[in-house]
Design a protein around this nucleic acid. Structure first.
Lengths: 143, 143
DNA sequence: GTATAATCATTGACTAATCAAGTATATGTC
DNA sequence: GACATATACTTGATTAGTCAATGATTATAC
């Protein structure tokens, strides 16, 4: 009884680490946006035409369809992202990265990189490569 | 510009994976409790005397002091944990695992183990060991 | 021993998400 | 071409936490 296997221990550690990390990021109050917001700007910036379907953004960030609606609302309000419809499919609405959003992302990424490096010490670069691989395996490639 | 380093990529992947994993666990509606609740019962069960200070529980789970207050409230209400004061230090209040809490934990751990194993395929046990090590390094030992 | 600082826990106000249900549109089947 | 099913997105109600402030107690410094 109460025999917790290694997989479950890993997932509990994952939960703990993520909780600590996201709190540290949100505490930065990185240019007024949170970590999830930052990820969204990142995905948009990476994408062709700086534009993605809302559902694809949600999938990439690991949140739900309703989650993306709720998350984008304030970003739209402050003008970091815009909205565009699809002529072929009226169900779809694209999210586009505005110039302001792009600029904020470029500024914020410096701060974010620095904190990430502080958290994941660069000492053990080999291990980091492995960690990256494993998380990618679990979550699908994020790039 | 927009040069995201490996550390930050790792943290974004971490966020995504954790989001997906916790949603899967919560969706189980594991005997009426969520994943954080499960972790708390686990820590209590592990501890000497099935009893811990609230602040230590919070630290171990990676949440804040107010978070533990809020999380424990419903668990107390349904009788999975109880409360005890410390004669020597009136600031402290201990959380104790009740018999009901112990029983529920024992039942839930089967379900949780199974899902964890499903998520983290046992195929690559060596990698899992590494992942465990790395997360432990990042979050402090969870055992 | 008194003042100051630190620790433990809680509360009010808030945010970031969830799910379940609903709306609108598109696609496949017959 | 009508009907059933699937997809994209939004909304209402709810939950799980956060932070900042506060209360209560204990420890430290002088």
């Amino acid at each position: 009884m109460s025999a917790i296997n290694e997989s479950l221990t890993i997932l509990m550690n994952l939960a703990k680490v993520q909780s600590i990390v996201s709190r540290r990021f949100d505490r930065l109050n990185m240019h007024g946006i949170g970590f999830t917001d930052f990820m969204i700007l990142y995905f948009l910036n990476q994408s062709a035409g700086q534009s993605m379907r809302r559902i694809d953004l949600a999938e990439k960030a690991g949140i739900t369809a309703s989650g993306i609606t709720r998350t984008l609302l304030p970003l739209e309000k402050i003008g970091l992202v815009g909205r565009e419809t699809n002529g072929r499919d009226a169900r779809v609405s694209y999210v586009i990265l505005t110039e302001a959003g792009k600029q904020l992302f470029n500024n914020a990424s410096g701060t974010a990189n620095a904190l990430a490096t502080e958290i994941i010490s660069a000492e053990n670069a080999a291990n980091n490569g492995m960690l990256f691989e494993l998380l990618t395996q679990l979550g699908g490639n994020i790039n």
